[in-house]
Computed example of a mutant assay.
Amino acid sequence: MIYDISRLLNANTPTWPGDTPFSYNLTWSQEETGSVNVGQITTSCHTATHVDAPFHFKDSGMTIEQLPLELFVGDALVVDVTTKGEITPKDFDGLDLSEVRRVLLKTETWTDDVFPEKIPIIHPDLGPFFLKHGIELLGVDLPSVDPLDSKTLDTHHSLLQNGVHILEGLTLTDVKPGMYRLTALPLKIEGADGSPVRAILEG
């Protein structure tokens, strides 16, 4: 079974306050061209379901086209943390992480088309914890892995320092905890700080 874990992109898609909203416009209609419809999109790189490149929060960090594609394809463990206001290494007690490279956190905090006012805290201690267990990708059903008002982005930096990449804006409502095969490939945009993705789970 395939689960589409991407948020819908349209004129109502929530965007980080002050960032570029998503829009799609028909540049040429079939009536005008005699053959095809041709549209254009405008969007922030961080709208809806997207990958953060390290360059997003560190000037010397890799840009989106430099990230290894194998990060975004392969087995992923969905972990249910829906009751948690703060997510720490203790929330992984009892889970076998020995074969896990990708973790997706299901918080169910952001389930509508309104940008959230508050999200759970993803503790920076997860960076070294994930490194210890060989985890290289963290996905969340949130617009950010840091508090919405954070300027220091401690969790972003902790994850980067420990070799963990970031996938944000997932929708995991219909997905039960467990192992799946993830595909969430970013676009090959030269020099970009992030990219929208079409993320799916198979399982």
Score class of each variant (00 low, 15 high):
Met1Lys: 10
Met1Gln: 11
Tyr3Gly: 05
Asp4Met: 00
Ile5Gln: 02
Ala11Thr: 00
Thr13Ser: 05
Pro14Asp: 03
Pro17Met: 02
Pro17Thr: 02
Asp19His: 02
Phe22His: 05
Ser29Thr: 15
Glu31His: 06
Glu31Ala: 13
Glu32Asp: 09
Gly34Tyr: 13
Asn37Asp: 15
Val38Met: 11
Thr42Tyr: 07
Cys45Ser: 03
Thr47Gly: 02
Ala48Glu: 08
Ala48Ser: 03
Thr49Trp: 01
His50Met: 01
His50Glu: 04
His50Leu: 03
Pro54Leu: 07
Ser60Thr: 15
Leu69His: 07
Glu70Tyr: 13
Glu70Thr: 14
Leu71Ile: 11
Phe72Gly: 00
Asp75Lys: 14
Asp75Pro: 15
Val78Gln: 09
Val79Phe: 11
Thr83Gln: 10
Gly85Arg: 09
Gly85Val: 00
Ile87Asn: 06
Pro89Ser: 09
Lys90Met: 03
Asp93Met: 08
Asp96Ile: 09
Leu97Trp: 11
Arg102Ala: 06
Thr107His: 14
Glu108Trp: 04
Thr111Cys: 04
Phe115Glu: 01
Phe115Arg: 03
Pro116Asn: 10
Glu117Val: 00
Ile119Gly: 01
Ile122Phe: 10
His123Pro: 05
His123Asn: 07
Leu126Ile: 15
Gly127Ser: 07
Pro128Ser: 04
Phe129Met: 09
Phe130Met: 14
Phe130Thr: 15
Leu131His: 14
Gly134Phe: 10
Val140Ser: 05
Val145Gln: 15
Asp146Phe: 06
Asp146Asn: 15
Pro147Ala: 03
Asp149Thr: 08
Thr152Cys: 04
Leu153His: 05
Thr155Asp: 06
Gln161Cys: 05
Asn162Gln: 13
Leu170Asn: 02
Lys176Asn: 09
Pro177Ala: 15
Met179Asp: 13
Leu182Phe: 09
Gly191Phe: 11
Gly191Val: 12
Ala192Ile: 07
Gly194Cys: 13
Gly194Phe: 12
Val197Ile: 03
Arg198Ile: 14
Ile200Lys: 10
Glu202Pro: 07
